[in-house]
Design a protein around this nucleic acid. Structure first.
Lengths: 336, 336
DNA sequence: GTGAAAGCGCTAACAC
DNA sequence: GTGTTAGCGCTTTCAC
């Protein structure tokens, strides 16, 4: 490594170029005309000194960081990277920088990042989490950061949100399974703290209700939103004395885990057990049999969040909260 | 939305609590003892005013952002999220925040993020890219940010790096394929700008050399590091009049694409064509047939980067550049 | 077209 | 145990 570098400030550049700091500033910002000759001088001085403008100082002064944070529960779930990229692409047109933050679905981390966002005075926040309430999001919005929530609208208006109609989609899947495999349809849900879990569960139950059946006892299970969770859930279901004919999993990762577990036990899918997932991540097409699932359009969801954020950060700070619905829909493949 | 909030500063809190700003500062930092009673007063005042410390101002003052950036080429490649999490976990013990940045493998984005890192005065940077040279990394290190490079060591010492011995591993795979399927082994490489590509190609050739064979004409192909790239590469190889008996792909995504393409054409794997990948992402186990590949230990690589960074940021700023090798190794499954 | 000077919100000597 | 004060590096009135 080199010696800790000399700290070159705008004053150093100004001195070397024989102009005032003001002028150097304007050379960089373009906020007012500078004579060409002067501009050259400044650039040369900056070059020679190896000047790098300090964005921290700038942010402090202008009260703007040009940065937005995306908070996500699990970056190793392929759904989220695609979503994040959607946000990022939408934001690229203006000159925002985006920070990706991974909570690992932990409550403490969710709050930590929210805190971060406000203390760092970020311009925007796209949030998806399991623990934080919309009221808390509203609080961070109140500090001045624009926030968009990936999740269903709260009962009363709070922050902008984009969602994908989980309950409707879950009901659609369940009805499909019910129609095809009879009443023996189980559901492996994710963390019950997650609003999405509750919605998907509600959809599952609604399908039974509208088919005029009761949900069989022991057919609703709660596990992690991971491959491992799906595996465990499937093991549990299979251990019962009336194992299900079909299983709906709250996301694809779980469905893939369930699939592996079923195969491990020598069951054929969908011959012995049918399996359906949720999200339509890339891997859903790749596993064998290809997964019947719900297309959750992470790219569109991300883009929508990005757009919403842009308009808020662009100054439309006091319109009523907006809701964008990008309805998820059933994709039938081989596993069910 | 609410009205743009009143900006509460440390002075406001101090005034309300009837103490000096210094004291408020120390209540938060714990850098010097504060009487219990005073502390209560301050906390209460802060609470009542809704005070949120401004991290930007703090960073400017203390010349430290407690933030590190991880720059990655493609966050939708499952290898990287796992890597990122490895870094993050290593960093969590100290109180660093991490920013994930996705270049989409674009040269301009790589440079943009490096610039960002220095202008934002980040404390650390973990970089993996295809275009930026180690010299450029050295330059950013010179500005004071600690940098760790995920990639092979340069010929002369520059910045800390961790790598996984791509050439050796690639040679191992190729030798395995050569031994099992004869000389008809092709290679679909990724972007040639990437150092990893060159190393894996070198390994491929080395295996032929040490087996005493020449690489068959037209058997070395360059494509994107994506599923789509693999698909195209496979199509190209299969279109030739002497299609390969086995194909080694520069990463798993490509291998999965190649697999799909082969199957689409009614070929069996490994019966008609054997396929091997590189990285051992989760999906490698999930596809059918399960992928023979190279375990690239993203978690360990990430952890190693995190550790290196921590020690540099902790003040060990002038030891010689270090290299950590976490050797990747062949994993034989069903596809080859 | 250019400069002087004030201040963004915080911390850390240096005082007491 | 607490306060005064001088900046951190930049932008931006206001003046010329």
């Amino acid at each position: 490594m080199l010696v800790p570098m000399a700290r070159i400030t705008i004053d150093d550049v100004a001195a070397r170029a024989g102009v005032s700091p003001t002028t150097v500033s304007h050379v960089y910002s373009g906020h007012r005309p500078v004579r060409d000759e002067t501009r050259q001088l400044v650039h040369q001085a900056a070059q020679e000194l190896g000047y790098r403008p300090n964005a921290v100082a700038r942010s402090l002064r202008v009260r703007k960081t040009s940065t937005v944070m995306i908070v996500l529960p699990d970056i190793t779930n392929p759904f989220y990277p695609v979503f994040a990229r959607g946000v990022q692409d939408a934001l690229r047109k203006d000159d925002y920088h985006v920070l990706l933050c991974n909570t690992d679905s932990r409550e403490s981390e969710e709050r930590l990042f929210l805190d971060e966002a406000v203390s760092r005075r970020l311009d925007g926040l796209v949030f998806m989490g399991y623990w934080v309430t919309t009221d808390e999001l509203l609080e961070v919005a109140a500090t001045g950061v624009s926030v968009v929530h990936l999740g269903q609208p709260a009962d009363r208006a709070t922050v902008d949100c984009v969602w994908s109609g989980d309950q409707v989609a879950a009901e659609q899947v369940t009805s499909y399974l019910l129609g095809r495999y009879g009443q023996s349809v189980a559901f492996i849900d994710g963390t019950m703290e997650a609003a999405v879990s509750r919605s998907r569960a509600a959809g599952y139950r609604a399908a039974f209700a509208s088919a005029g059946h009761d949900v069989p006892a022991g057919f609703e299970i709660t596990e992690d939103f991971t491959t491992e969770g799906g595996r465990r859930g499937m093991a549990l279901l299979l251990a019962g004395d009336g194992p299900p004919r079909a299983v709906f999993c709250a996301n694809d990762l779980m469905a893939i885990g369930a699939l592996e577990e079923a195969r491990r036990r020598g069951l054929t899918v969908p011959g012995d057990v049918a399996i359906a997932g949720y999200d339509d991540i890339d891997a859903a097409r790749l596993v064998t049999p290809a997964l019947t699932t719900v297309r959750n359009n992470p790219d569109l969801l991300g883009a929508a969040c990005g757009e919403l954020l842009l308009s808020r950060m662009g100054g439309d700070t006091d319109g009523a909260p907006r809701e964008v619905l990008i309805q998820a829909e059933l994709v039938i493949r081989e596993s069910a």
